[in-house]
Design a protein around this nucleic acid. Structure first.
Lengths: 192, 192
DNA sequence: CGAAACCTACCGTGCTACCGGTAGGCGCGT
DNA sequence: ACGCGCCTACCGGTAGCACGGTAGGTTTCG
């Protein structure tokens, strides 16, 4: 029972950390703020995660499990049609989007603990997307690009849209815009 | 001479600030680090810019002048072909790209002093792009999108590519990828 | 002389992290 | 059955540092 309670606590803490990072970024986040949100003192929090950085990597690993686990096949093999739904899903989870957009932004700075994570993650995701595209369209997409080159753009559009959407949700229809892009990739439809 | 020297100093300071933000982000940047880089004490620095935030807005205004001034017409009317060159130019200025990518990332957090700047800036840039696209292609792009919808994607691709490129410059050919996207926008070429 | 351009000294705050507790539960030997 | 010791889950105190910012000088130049 104590063990279960402990796991539960850790999950609470991770959720709270996610929120706090969404609000202030990693550098702006403080152990005290996270602790307060789960009803602990800062010292109690450090009992579960020995350092601030440990907390961050736990959040990152959590995410990693989540979207390599739910993604279907082994190497992040998203079905192409499902990508649109993913974006729609994200549009309903602004906190998570904010967290990872903030972290991505910070991660390009020096010695940031999330940098390696994101670097590796993006190469994986690009490879996965490229594989999916190749499986679906062969070596040349309808738009004329190779799967690898299209994959870079696909990822770029997803990230870039998130920033515009976070800054001004009213002005940017994220899922719609992503759909537009998918349309471009698929090339000009023959009939109607 | 003192006046000239002063202006010169301020320019030095802004350049140093840009560098420090590129390395540590705004929140991670410290007045001491900026001061050291221009050979001042932290208090000497505060003589020129009374607060840390004043320093940031100066950097932002500087950028604003730069790329509304150099952009050609009034409302950021970039010629479409020049966008490719801009991306190539950026690929040679990693420090600036890093600075603004880091700031963009931070700006989605709460109470960030750059948030309003980015929000306004993006609406402007989108509008400018849309105007350019409309001038060049009319109300429907070859790819089938309206100028406004294409503008969102254009901006998203530029930003998204920057992050991938900053994290792994070897793996991502930023100008090439952007060229690919422009190709998609322009739709399938008729002849060859 | 007077203003601009600094510097030295200092303050208050906030943050991470360590040290040393304490309270309760649980196994274990006798 | 029961007490002993250990483990988990915390909290109070605080060290140690870095940061942003203020106050008040001092040099330097016109």
């Amino acid at each position: 029972m104590a063990r279960a309670r402990s796991e539960e606590r850790r999950a609470e803490i991770l959720r709270a950390t996610l929120e706090v990072i969404a609000e202030r970024g990693y550098r702006g986040a403080t152990l005290g703020a996270v602790a307060e949100r789960v009803g602990l003192t800062q010292q109690g929090l450090l009992h579960y995660f020995p350092t601030k950085e440990a907390l961050l990597v736990a959040v990152l690993e959590d995410r990693d499990r989540w979207d390599t686990g739910g993604g279907g096949g082994e190497e992040g093999a998203w079905r192409l049609e499902l990508l649109g739904s993913l974006v729609e899903y994200n549009a309903m989870r602004p906190v998570i989007v904010r967290t990872f957009s903030a972290l991505l932004g910070e991660s390009v700075t020096e010695d940031h603990p999330a940098r390696e994570f994101f670097t590796r993650r993006y190469t994986q995701v690009r490879a996965g997307m490229a594989a999916t595209l190749r499986a679906e369209y062969g070596d040349t997409l309808p738009g004329g690009l190779s799967p690898e080159r299209a994959a870079v753009l696909l990822v770029a559009v997803m990230d870039g849209l998130q920033y515009q959407w976070l800054l001004d949700p009213e002005a940017v229809d994220m899922p719609g815009a992503f759909g537009d892009f998918l349309g471009l990739l698929k090339g000009p439809e023959a009939p109607s």
